[in-house]
Structures are given as C-alpha cells and as structure tokens.
Simulated scan of single mutants.
Amino acid sequence: MVFTMSEDEIINCTISHEIHQYLFSCVYILVLLIGIPSNLYSLYHAALQLKQKNELGVYLMNLTVSDLLYLASLPLWLQYIFQDDDWRHREWLCQLCGFLLYENIYISIGFLCCISLDRYLAVVHPLRFTSLRSMSAAWIVSAIIWLKEIAVGVVFFRHKELSQDRKNQSVCFEHYPMKPWEYPINYYRFTIGFMFPLAILSISYLCVLRAVGRSAGTQPDQKMRIRQLVSSTILIFLVCFSPYHIFLLVRTLLERDCNFIAGTVSFLQSNPVISGHDK
C-alpha cells in the first residue's frame, strides 16, 4: 500500500512525552557517564593498535570517533527532553543532532562488519588476501564507509526536520505520523542498513567457528574463547540494533494515522524497554 498524502495534508499527532522525559533522560545520562570514559579508553587502545601496525586499530578508532561524535550531541537531546520535547535551537542544529544519531548507528554497524570480515580472513584464509588486511586497505575501507554514510545521510536529511505539533511545540527529528518520504528511507535502513550487515556478521562468524572447529592445532580452551567472542559479538549486535529496527519496520508498515500512534504510545508505556527515537 502506497501512502500518497502530501506533507501539507499531514496533521502532527498529539502524543505523550512521558516516555522521553523519564526513560530517555535516564538512558542518555547513563550513556554519557559510561560512554565518555569507555570510549576515551577505547580510543587509547586503538592508538596502541595503530602503533603496532594492526589494521583492527583503524576500525576501532573510527568506531570510537563515531561514538564520541554522537555523545557530543546528547546534552542537546537532554535539554530537548527536559523542555518537554520542545526544540528551542535553530533547525540546522536539530538536523545536525539527527544526522549524528543516524551516522552513529550505521557507521557503527559498518565498522562492526569490517571487524568481522577481518577476523574471517585472518582465521579462515590466513595466508591469502593479505593485501586486504593491510593498514592502507583499512584506511581506504574506512574512508569509503564514512563517505557513503555521509552521502546517504545528506540525502535523507534534505527534508525539514523541525515541525510544530498540536501544542505548538517545536518537535525535532520526530514525525507523527510518518511523512511520505520516510517510507522508502526506512525500508532502505531496515534491509541495507540492518539485515544485510547482520547477514555478513552471521556468515563470517559461522565460517570462523567452522574453521576453528576443524583446526587440529587450536587448543580446546582457545576454541571456547573464540566461540564465546563470536557469540557475544552477534548478541551485542542484536541487542543494540534489532529492537530499534524492528520497531522502525512496524511503524513503517502499519502507521498511517494518529490512532496507530495512540495505541503504540500506550504499548510503549507498558513496555518501555523497546521504545526508541523516530529515526
């Protein structure tokens, strides 16, 4: 079913902001308190890896920089939440904060895929594709990921991201109901941004597990550590990214009017752990 209503015909729904005010404020403060020191330590560890000419340090550093950029936007999101979801800054700042949120999700996913593919080549094909595991290759791949996601983000965020709700509040980065141009974008994000990387992670790590299981020179305790590492990586990926993308897909498939929004908000108030930002 194609949603053909024009943007001017869409009336923003009146929604409860209690979820944002209570749940998101606690989550954002916790993320700031834990994320800043842990990412600074990760950046230090990445620098050590770079000094040792380890290509994993390149991916880890880029992953950490992406996280730090997003963390820099959280104080503005907290201010927005504490002001009852009323954005009182310029629209370009709203677009920038939304852009950093988007970039953090998909750049993080991209570099997690790079790390999984690097481990796949190191374990399954240790003597082949050495050129793909060099420092120069890692920098080139990293540049491609940044440029690709920035280009996609620019296309996504050419639309207006600041709108007025029925309470005459300036709502940033949230559209209730979704606008027509969001539907193809959300399908792209779910399939290319989430499902495709998940397939890459799963296939590469299954190949790693199979290669380790067949290796006669690998000690049982080493095999166990590798299995635990692989399992925890996929679990972290699913925990961090699947609730958001599943909820995004549900909204994209079902959301057409304010009645759906009202039912969804009631559901999230009783199940806040799966709630998330509009984008």
Rank of each mutant, 00 (worst) to 15 (best):
V27P: 05
R133L: 07
L68H: 06
L63G: 11
S73G: 06
I107F: 01
N39L: 03
P184H: 07
D257M: 03
I192Q: 02
L248C: 05
S270V: 12
V154R: 00
I10L: 13
S131M: 03
S275E: 09
Y102I: 00
L71A: 07
L23S: 08
S66T: 15
S25N: 11
V31D: 07
A46L: 06
D257V: 03
I115M: 15
G98H: 00
C240Q: 13
N168P: 02
G35R: 05
R210L: 11
I36M: 03
Y59C: 01
L112E: 10
Y41F: 12
L127Q: 11
L209P: 03
G213E: 09
S136M: 03
D67Q: 15
L33M: 12
A138G: 07
V123H: 01
M5V: 15
K279M: 14
Y44S: 10
F111I: 04
S42V: 01
I274P: 05
N186P: 05
G35W: 00
H125K: 14
L209W: 05
Q95D: 10
W77Q: 11
M135P: 00
Q83L: 07
I274H: 04
I105P: 05
S131V: 04
Y244M: 14
L121M: 14
E149I: 00
I81V: 13
H175F: 12
V152D: 00
A211R: 15
Q164N: 08
Y70V: 05
E174I: 05
T252K: 05
F173H: 13
Q219G: 05
L132Y: 14
L30P: 03
I107M: 07
Q269D: 13
F157W: 09
D86V: 00
W181Q: 15
S16W: 03
Q269L: 13
H20A: 14
H245N: 14
L71M: 06
V154N: 02
I81M: 07
W181C: 06
L96A: 15
A72R: 01
E182H: 11
S232W: 09
E161W: 08
L254A: 12
I109A: 09
T233I: 08
Q83N: 15
